[in-house]
Design a protein around this nucleic acid. Sequence first.
DNA 1: CGGTATCCTCTTCGATACTG
DNA 2: CAGTATCGAAGAGGATACCG
Lengths: 128, 128
Amino acid sequence: MTDTLRKYTREKIQQKDFDCAKEYTLSMFSGKYKIVIIYHLFHDGTMRFNAIQRLLDDATHKMLAQQLKELAADGLVTRREEMTNNRKAVYYSLTPTGASLMPIIEAMFSWGTNRLDALQLENNFKLQ
Amino acid sequence: MTDTLRKYTREKIQQKDFDCAKEYTLSMFSGKYKIVIIYHLFHDGTMRFNAIQRLLDDATHKMLAQQLKELAADGLVTRREEMTNNRKAVYYSLTPTGASLMPIIEAMFSWGTNRLDALQLENNFKLQ
DNA sequence: CGGTATCCTCTTCGATACTG
DNA sequence: CAGTATCGAAGAGGATACCG
């Protein structure tokens, strides 16, 4: 439903119905690879398309392009194109809006880490 | 990819690969209606299946049942069955683990609210 | 009342190939 | 190098019906 959610909230908002704030936020980063892209752009700074793809070795070319396009459309990421002797280089970087999602992503990281620790403890108890 | 993500992180974790903490957290509440269910169970307390469905008037019976089952499997929600003169009543409530997601959900709500306000301001500027 | 199974449709996503 | 188009397979999700 990832993209369905994005379309859904966009439509609601266009119809001046703003009663979907949490769903809207969720739709910002629930696309495939989006959290990781944001996370890396925040920590490593501006990156080229290929550099991002190398970080996400299981991401297909098509999917990555699509996700970056959506992130740009949502104002979380900027795209800068550069031509150096007939070679196109495209640089992506996080906007302030995109960076403002980091506290939430960090919170998700730390919740997940704690939760996984707790689950492991439970399992160890069971195994004893 | 909602459910795909849930399966993906579950598999990684079973293979003792815990390098997916944020994705794991995301998979906890990115199913259809899950944030809203958690939100309501937190604010309104224990509820019966039908009460939850009435709150989510566009949710189909099947989807709601499925999402509640997943939430229970993930330890975010508990299910309590009660038989009163041949009538089954099922009560759902949030576990402490489920409740511990609320700060993240609140953060998503407030990020979304701020962002939507900012976008409206931008539009007003454009229209002037 | 609450849960599940079946069927059917629309969307997602990967592989591949083609453009500038 | 980066982006897009096409095609096919898998998944999501609604409608409906049936079980306890």
